[in-house]
Lab assay of single mutants.
Amino acid sequence: QWKVGDKCSAIWSEDGCIYPATIASIDFKRETCVVVYTGYGNREEQNLSDLLSPICE
C-alpha cells in the first residue's frame, strides 16, 4: 500500500512518458493521490492504481 512520501513512478499526462515522482498526498476515498515529479516540481493527480514502482536511476 502506498503512503505519503513514497517514491514511485508515474505517467505524466502531457506526454505519456514515465517519470520518477514522490507521493505528496493521498485521498483513500477516491483512490487518488497527488504526485510531485522529481526534478521538475510539477504536481499532478493520479489514480493510486496507476502508480508504478520507482525507477532505478
Rank of each mutant, 00 (worst) to 15 (best):
E57T: 15
D27S: 05
L51N: 02
D15E: 02
D27M: 08
V34F: 06
N47L: 12
R30K: 13
R30F: 09
I26S: 01
V34C: 03
D50G: 05
Y40H: 15
A21D: 00
N42L: 14
N42I: 15
L48I: 04
W12A: 02
C8K: 00
N42D: 10
A24E: 15
S25T: 09
G39K: 10
E44C: 06
L48S: 01
I18G: 01
K7A: 12
L48P: 02
P54F: 09
P54T: 08
K29S: 12
L52V: 03
E31L: 14
D50R: 07
L52F: 11
I23Q: 03
A24F: 14
R43V: 07
S9N: 09
E45A: 06
R30I: 10
W12Q: 02
S25E: 10
I11G: 01
V35T: 02
K29E: 14
C17P: 01
N47F: 13
T22D: 01
T32I: 10
Q46W: 07
I11C: 01
L51H: 02
W12R: 10
V36F: 04
Y37I: 01
Q46Y: 05
I55K: 04
E31Y: 11
S9Q: 12
P20V: 11
E45Y: 05
V34R: 03
L48W: 06
S49V: 11
S25P: 03
S49L: 07
S49I: 11
Y37H: 00
D15L: 07
R43T: 12
G39N: 09
L52S: 02
S53P: 15
C56S: 14
E57N: 11
G5Y: 07
S9L: 15
R30A: 12
I55P: 09
S25N: 02
Q1W: 11
N47G: 03
C56W: 15
I23N: 02
C17F: 11
V35R: 02
E45D: 03
E45H: 06
P20E: 12
V36N: 01
V34P: 02
G16S: 04
L52K: 06
V4F: 04
I26H: 02
S13E: 03
C8V: 15
I23V: 05
V34H: 01
T38M: 11
E44G: 04
S13D: 04
I18Y: 14
C8W: 04
G41W: 09
V35C: 06
S25W: 10
A10D: 02
N47I: 05
A10R: 03
D27V: 09
D50T: 05
D50L: 07
S13H: 07
P20N: 14
G16F: 07
W2K: 14
N47S: 07
I23R: 02
D15N: 11
Y40I: 12
T38A: 11
K29V: 14
A24L: 15
Q46R: 07
C33A: 15
P20H: 11
V36W: 07
G41S: 07
V36C: 01
R30M: 10
E45L: 09
A24G: 04
L51M: 05
